Amino acid sequence: MTIKELLLLEIESTPDTILAETLDFIRFLKMKEPQTQHVSEVAPSAPHTTVNSTGRSLLEHLKTIGKWEGDDLKECLELVYATRGKAKFDYENPFE
């Protein structure tokens, strides 16, 4: 059986709550994949170096990040609200 066929079999017996998380994860992976390929195309042999970030360097980096484009902000927020869990604190605060 192919991976796709195995996934389809699993989907048939999976509850909707898990399927919602799975869908979100698949979308994340698909979004992440082109970015990973792009980085390797730009600098295939560049070694990874550790950089000590400062407030100034982080602000400079923000200038290189694109702005929000698209009309799916409302859909994204609805997905966040639908899939996030409620925090539960059922232990004593050790700092009190």
Rank of each mutant, 00 (worst) to 15 (best):
E33W: 09
G66A: 15
G66S: 15
D24Y: 07
L23V: 07
Q35A: 13
H48Y: 14
T50D: 08
T22C: 06
P34W: 03
D72H: 09
E69G: 08
A20R: 13
G66H: 11
E33M: 13
D71H: 09
A46C: 04
D71S: 13
F28D: 07
D71Y: 01
H38V: 05
S40G: 03
P44A: 01
T64L: 10
A20V: 12
N52G: 01
Q37Y: 03
H38T: 12
T54D: 06
L62F: 11
L62R: 13
V51T: 11
D24F: 06
T64I: 03
H61M: 10
S57Y: 06
G66V: 02
A43K: 07
D24K: 10
H38W: 04
E41T: 07
A46V: 02
L29C: 03
S53M: 11
I65P: 02
E69I: 04
S57K: 09
E33F: 14
G70L: 14
H48N: 12
I26S: 02
G70R: 10
D24H: 09
G55C: 06
V39I: 14
T22W: 09
H48V: 13
N52S: 07
P34H: 04
F28G: 03
E69A: 10
Q35Y: 05
P44L: 01
L58P: 00
E41K: 11
T49Q: 15
F28K: 06
G70P: 13
A46D: 03
T36F: 09
E69H: 06
D72K: 10
E21P: 00
F28T: 15
G66N: 14
L73P: 02
L23N: 01
W68R: 03
H38P: 00
D71T: 13
F25I: 10
V42P: 02
P47T: 06
I26G: 00
W68A: 04
F28E: 08
H38K: 14
D24P: 00
S45L: 14
T22Y: 11
P44K: 06
G66T: 09
Q37K: 14
G66P: 01
L73R: 05
L29F: 05
E21M: 10
D72W: 01
L29D: 00
S45H: 15
K63P: 02
P34F: 04
K63R: 12
A43P: 00
M31D: 15
I26V: 15
L62N: 13
T49P: 00
K32Q: 05
F28V: 15
K30E: 07
L59H: 13
E33Y: 13
V39Y: 04
T22E: 03
L29K: 08
L73G: 03
P44W: 12
A20S: 12
V51N: 05
G66K: 15
A46M: 04
L73D: 06
T50N: 08
E21F: 05
I26Q: 04
T50W: 04
L58R: 05
V42W: 09
S45R: 15
D72G: 08
W68Y: 14
V39H: 05
E60F: 02
T64G: 03
D24M: 09
T36L: 11
H38S: 12
P47W: 01
V42N: 02
L19M: 09
D72E: 12
G66I: 08
L23D: 02
L19S: 06
T36D: 12
T36N: 05
K67Q: 14
L29N: 02
L59A: 11
L59Y: 15
V39E: 05
P34M: 01
S45Q: 15
P34Y: 05
L73V: 08
L59P: 00
T64D: 04
D72M: 08
